[in-house]
């Protein structure tokens, strides 16, 4: 079973925007990103190692973003994306299980902090499912100009949907204080 190429391109374009924004956010707030990595490691790693890890994550996300936007082989891309998202989810789950629930997830695009939460792991699961569709490969249909219109708007809508989900999780965290 293979997917129509326009669906593959929409998913690739979305992940291109996704990792581009994530890498840009980490570069812009590099010191905070290093602090978040240290917090994820429960302050057990040296600052230089945290800086190196932050740089490696930014590089990896940047590379994936470029490859997504330039339509690299979708199966190889899917493997990279799934691995990275799975790793992020694993780190969040490990910290949550260890009782560290007030960490900034480091996954926000817009500057507002989102605290690690099991719902973020579910969100990562949904993203992994989306990336997993790339494993199916694409059919041989030739794309026409109208398909690129679909790719642009589809990726934009998926990005906005992602922002909406993240904002909803943040809203529920904000309202949690008043619930008794």
């Amino acid at each position: 079973m293979s997917m129509d190429p326009v669906v593959i391109r929409v998913i690739q374009a979305f992940f291109g925007v996704f990792f581009c924004a994530a890498a840009f956010h980490k570069v812009r707030f590099f010191a905070e990103t290093v602090g978040i990595i240290e917090a994820y490691a429960d302050q057990r790693i040296r600052r230089s190692l945290a800086k190196g890890t932050a740089a490696a994550v930014i590089f990896l996300e940047g590379v994936i973003a470029v490859l997504c936007l330039f339509a690299f082989d979708s199966v190889v891309l899917a493997a990279w994306i799934v691995s990275l998202l799975f790793f992020y989810g694993l780190v969040m789950a490990a910290n949550l299980l260890a009782g560290r629930r007030d960490l900034d997830c480091g996954c926000s695009w817009a500057g507002d902090a989102t605290v690690v939460d099991y719902r973020l792991i579910v969100r990562n699961g949904a993203l992994i499912f989306l990336a997993g569709l790339l494993f199916l490969g694409e059919s041989s249909r030739v794309l026409i100009w109208l398909d690129f219109f679909t790719v642009g708007f589809g990726a934009a809508c998926l990005s906005l949907l992602y922002l909406f989900v993240e904002q909803s999780i943040r809203n529920s965290q904000l309202s949690g204080v008043t619930v008794r």
Partner: peptide, 8 residues
């Protein structure tokens, strides 16, 4: 303060 100053 946690949000503004980061985890460190």
């Amino acid at each position: 303060e946690k949000v503004n100053v980061g985890p460190e």
